[in-house]
Amino acid sequence: MKADPAVQRRLLDLAAVDGELARAEHRRRTLPEQAAVEEAERALRAAADAVVVAQTALSDLDRDVAKLDREVEQVRTRETRDRQLLDNGSVSAKQATDLQHELDSLERRRAVLEEEQLEVMERQEAAGIDLRHETDAHAAAQTALEDAVERRDGTLGDIGTTEARRGEERTALVAELPADLVALYDKIRAKSGVGAGELVGNRCGACRLEMDRSELRDIQGAAPDDVVRCENCGAIVVRTGK
């Protein structure tokens, strides 16, 4: 294939644009900000799970406290009834003795219930503190995720702007170059990642490897409009006289 030397030098501009586009794509795929978003999402899920656990624990204790409240109230109601029967003197001596025994039992039962009630209420208070702590942690995790998403989206926006600008430059460059030369360049680039490189001394600008003397001699001896390629990487070698 042949192409005017000036046209071949334009391939270096195209390669530079493609290199920047490739770096932008690599950055998009390996974005640290995306990893930060994913980590923040995991932290938020863990925080949400912790809130559910704390809510469940507090709900169970609320139910226990309510149950104990009912039991204590039932005992007190029974005590009140028994004392009223004793106080109004409407029962026999044996019934009075039985009522007194029952009152003693009820008092002991109430003492046990009230002690248990106090213990459960203390646990309920601690569970409420835990829930507030987990809720605050969840809110902080939500904020951290929002911040991470904002940073990622900002970076993606910058990458998108670069891709759009370089894409326009590439379109303009391709329009100026012969179709067969661009087709060859794109075929090479699809295979090895770089379609063309400048010959600097005895080194290929595409693969950065030094050429042996015979290859270098062949390239330097080729006609100026010959499209020559590197034996190592297959890229088009652009001769600029450097």
Rank of each mutant, 00 (worst) to 15 (best):
M1T: 03
K2Q: 10
D4E: 11
V7M: 00
Q8P: 02
R10P: 03
L11V: 01
L12Y: 09
D13A: 05
G19K: 13
R23I: 12
A35T: 15
A40C: 05
A43T: 06
A43S: 04
A46G: 04
A47Y: 10
V51N: 03
Q55T: 15
D60Y: 06
D64K: 15
L68D: 08
E73T: 11
T77Y: 07
R78T: 09
E79Q: 14
V91N: 02
Q95M: 01
A96W: 13
D98F: 15
L103N: 03
L103W: 00
E107K: 15
L113R: 00
E115H: 10
E122K: 14
A126Y: 12
I129M: 11
I129S: 14
R132P: 08
H133P: 03
H133Y: 15
H138N: 08
A140I: 11
Q142I: 07
A148Q: 08
V149F: 03
R151G: 01
R151A: 05
R152G: 02
T155Y: 13
T155A: 08
R166H: 10
E169F: 00
A172Q: 14
V174H: 02
L177R: 00
L177E: 00
D180N: 02
L181F: 04
L181P: 00
I188F: 01
V194Y: 01
E198R: 08
V200F: 11
G201C: 07
G201T: 04
G201E: 05
A206M: 07
R208K: 15
L209P: 00
E210W: 10
M211L: 15
D212W: 10
E215Q: 10
R217P: 14
G221Q: 12
P224M: 03
E231I: 12
V238W: 01
